[in-house]
Every structure is written in C-alpha cells, then in structure tokens.
C-alpha cells in the first residue's frame, strides 16, 4: 500500500540525513572559519601570533557567552531582545557597588544578580503575563537601559576594586585569556546540557511543539522561565567581563548587542521558530564572527561596515538552504 512507498522514500532520506541536517551545517561553518583564517593570515603577518589570536577571543567571548544561553531560549521557541539593556543595567549596578567601596566578590555578584533578576522579570512577563517574548523584551529592553540612564545620566563610573580588571583583561596562562577559558568551560557545559540531558531534550521538544510538550508532561512555563533567567544571568556575566575590560561603566554600553548575539545564534544553525539547533554550531558561529570582525579590523574596515557583513552572512546563510529547498531538487 501507500505505506510501502513512503517508507522507501523515508529510508533514502534517513541515510542522507546526517549529511543534510547536522554535519553539513557545522562543516560549512568550519570551512568558512578556515577560509577566513587563511584570508586573515594572508592579510596580516601578525595574525598568526598567539597574542593576536588571543585578542580575537576577547572581542567575541562576551557576546558568545550570552549566545550560548540565548541558543537554548531560541531553541525553546522564545527570544530575548533585552540582553543589551541587561548588560548596561548590570554594569551600572556593579559601578555603584564598587563606588560604595565594597569588595570585588560583591561587585561581581551584584552584576550577575542584576542579570538574574532582569531575567526573572522577562520570564514572568512571558510565562505569567502571557506576553509574546519579542514584545515583552522590547519593552524591558527600554526599561532596563532606561533605568541605567536614570541612575547614571551622562555620567561615568570608573572606580573599581583592584583585581577587577583581570576578569576582562587578564590571562590564565600566556596568551590564554580568562575570558577564553570561561567561554570554553561554559560551552562544554552547554554542549552536555543540550545533547546529553533530559533538559536539552525538553528544550527542543518545547520549541518544536509547545502544546504537545505541555500535553506530554513537560512543565513548559517553568522551563521557559528558567531559560529567561539563564539568559539574564549570562548577560550579567557578560557585563562583568565587558565592564572589566573597558574599566568603566556608561549607560550606553553594549548598544545593539542583542542583534549581534541573535545573529550568532541563527548563524549557528538554530531555527528561529524553535525546535532545531546544536551548541557546537553556535560555538562555531561565534568563532567565525569573531574572526571576521577581527579580520576586518586588521584591514582597517570600520565597525559599522562589519554590520553589513554580519547581516549579509545571516541572510545568505538562511536564504541559500531555503532557496535550494524551494527551487532545487524535489518539490514537497
């Protein structure tokens, strides 16, 4: 009967799938990274210097830390536009704690706690208030950055306890920066969480079909809330790194980061509608974006032009497979 032809077709598809769905995406990213690496090395003799490479990681690790958490949130079918605002707010809170003369651990804790609380606000708006996440976080983005402006005005906070600068500028061993070590550790945790735990399975299930997930006994609201808190906390952590690296707090820091972070996530192969995505993909996308940014920097291309490159990358990367699906090969 019809089932026979169906399973034959499906078999063909399944044997092809590893190439199509998983490996291919990450392979493409690796290829892109290699190409860019070669171009950069060719463009500047200093690029292959370990210290230069270390600078590459610093410029991207802060965003990548948030992207790891954001990847889970997007896989679960939600989004957080407010991360830039959270970073600014957390930075202001650290600046105030530091100005009050409190010690280093409290300064760091206040930044992370601010991020966590902001994540709770987003999570509550979405899960209790039933506001679509894109709308809710557009609102809180203005709110969080607005509070930062209200507190600080056009002022700057610059006094931080000794040792604070190490977090964003220091190195663990030689050219290996603390930011890089932290990112690698968090990426390892994220990979395990996504690919080896029931939690990761539930995240993907929730994004793939929220209603069926709820009907399968997944506490989808609790899960979503937890993911917003995770993104907020990651933004708090990124704020610690960024504030430490800059050595100062302004309410305008991390402006527009939300778009770069989300671009990183989508470039990593996470489907914006949820349910699909891998963490290695996001990590590779972060590396790629770091290399491209840095390479353009070596060529003295201004930062704003970089946005043309990221934007084009984002669209091409999503449009090409979509176009192939639609106009090439078999029709669905």
């Amino acid at each position: 009967m019809s089932d026979v032809s169906l399973s034959a077709r499906s078999k063909a598809r399944v044997t092809r799938r590893p190439w199509h769905a998983l490996v291919r995406w990450e392979t493409l990213l690796v290829l892109a990274i290699l190409v860019d690496f070669a171009i950069n090395a060719h463009a500047s003799p200093y690029f292959l210097d370990p210290w230069t490479l270390s600078d590459v990681t610093v410029s991207v690790a802060e965003k990548a830390v948030v992207a790891l958490a954001m990847a889970f949130l997007v896989m679960a079918g939600e989004i957080d536009i407010s991360v830039g605002g959270i970073i600014a707010l957390a930075s202001v809170s650290m600046g105030l704690v530091a100005r009050a003369g409190l010690p280093l651990p409290l300064v760091v804790a206040s930044g992370i706690a601010t991020g966590l609380l902001a994540g709770c606000v987003n999570g509550a708006l979405v899960t209790i208030g039933r506001v679509p996440s894109i709308v809710a976080t557009i609102g809180t983005m203005t709110l969080f950055r607005g509070i930062a402006y209200a507190v600080l005005g056009d002022g700057v906070l610059k006094t931080y306890p000794p040792g604070f600068a190490w977090l964003g500028q220091g190195s663990v061993a030689g050219p290996v920066s603390f930011e890089l070590v932290l990112f690698v550790a968090l990426a390892a945790v994220a990979i395990v969480l996504r690919h080896a735990t029931a939690f990761g399975r539930r995240v993907v299930a929730t994004g793939s079909n929220p209603e069926a997930s709820r009907m399968s006994g997944i506490a989808t609201d609790r899960l979503r809330f937890a993911l917003f808190v995770a993104v907020g906390t990651a933004a708090g952590l990124a704020s610690v790194l960024l504030t430490s690296r800059l050595g100062s707090t302004r309410p305008s820091i991390a402006q527009g980061w939300e778009l770069e972070i989300i671009t990183m996530v989508i470039l990593g192969g996470v489907a914006i509608e949820g349910g699909i995505g891998t963490i290695p993909g996001v990590v590779l996308a972060a590396i790629l974006m770091g290399l491209v940014t840095f390479g353009l920097g070596l060529l003295n291309v201004p930062g704003i032009v970089m946005s043309v490159v990221t934007g084009t990358m984002l669209i091409v990367v999503v449009a090409v497979p979509a176009a192939l699906r639609r106009y090439g090969g078999g029709r669905q």
Binding site: I79, I134, L259, I262, T263, I266, I272, E273, P302, I304, V305, M306, S307, V308, V309, T310, G311, T312, L314, I315, V318, A319, A322, A323, R326
Partner: peptide, 27 residues
C-alpha cells in the same frame, strides 16, 4: 521577497537587512 518567496521568518530577514541598511548608510 525573502519572506514571500523563500519563506524565511520575517524577524530573521529584517534582522539581517537592518544591519545591512545601517551599514549601507556609512558606505
């Protein structure tokens, strides 16, 4: 066109063109 012909979610498309158009101002 990207939303209609390629069925890419509009948030992805306009996130991309947002960066491109903004960079184009500079160019």
């Amino acid at each position: 066109l990207l939303v209609w012909r390629l069925r890419i979610p509009s948030i992805v498309v306009t996130l991309g063109t947002l960066s491109i158009y903004r960079g184009a101002v500079y160019l």
